[in-house]
Amino acid sequence: MIRLVVNGESREVEKDTTVAALLEELGSPPERAAIELNLQIIDKKEYTRTVLKDGDRLEIISFVGGG
């Protein structure tokens, strides 16, 4: 297992988990979310190829009501 920080919360996932797999686990639709990994935006095309490492910090955002 490796430890990540996802949206400020600590989280354990299997070793070699990709961004795509994490998103699936979290149940948020990838086409409407955007992801920053250690302050770098990850292109959607890279989700399946990006393997997460211990200590990675992710921000997963989406749109909510706002003015």
Binding site: N7, G27, I60, S62, G66
Partner: peptide
């Protein structure tokens, strides 16, 4: 719209 963290606890939240 506003840009905010996805709620990762409540997974079935509507968008």
């Amino acid at each position: 719209v506003a840009v905010r963290r996805v709620n990762i606890i409540d997974r079935n939240k509507e968008n």
